[in-house]
Amino acid sequence: MASAATVAASGVASKARAQQAEVPAGAKIGIPAGETSSVSFKVNGQDQTLSVDNRTTLLDALREHLHLTGTKKGCDHGQCGACTVMVDGRRINSCLSLAIMHEGDEVVTIEGLGEPGKLHPMQAAFVKHDGYQCGYCTPGQICSSVAVLEEIKAGMPSHVTGDLTAKVAFSLEEIRERMSGNLCRCGAYSNIVDAIADVAGRPA
């Protein structure tokens, strides 16, 4: 059953907004020349040009510079998959990639897949199958799921693919293996697989 009841959490006003920045004298804001770079890429179809510290990961560029916080930081070390985004159509861990190494790339994040009221079929399937709980790994799971179905379609094999020389076929076992780079500590796996199978047009 669908529901349009609202979570009104986003409208919380904050007294803290009124607080003005007071940067103490002597604070050093500058970053030495040569240690920042300009980078231009597309995010969710929009051109973006950023001047960032060379050290800034794609993940932090999305979250802290572009305020696209749908992409999550769970571990910052490529161990959880919460930061999964698609770059030029391939899923990657955005935490283990420098922003400045994405010149000219096309990045798609969870925000680019759909929005409330206009969900991507995979987002809708996650809602329908309750394929999430706390929601923190969810954007990464969804980005990964979308890419996984493309990978199977493109014939990319996996660890559980039986015959490497045969055409890769959809199966729940294939989904589970391919999604294993996305941890969900709430343990929604069983439902996530149902959601993906639903989108793939296969019975769960």
Partner: peptide, 19 residues
Amino acid sequence: IERIDGQMKTTGRAKYAYE
């Protein structure tokens, strides 16, 4: 009943502490 916060969570619009 599907979660009423489901659309926010699945579209990355739900804001967590650091966000």
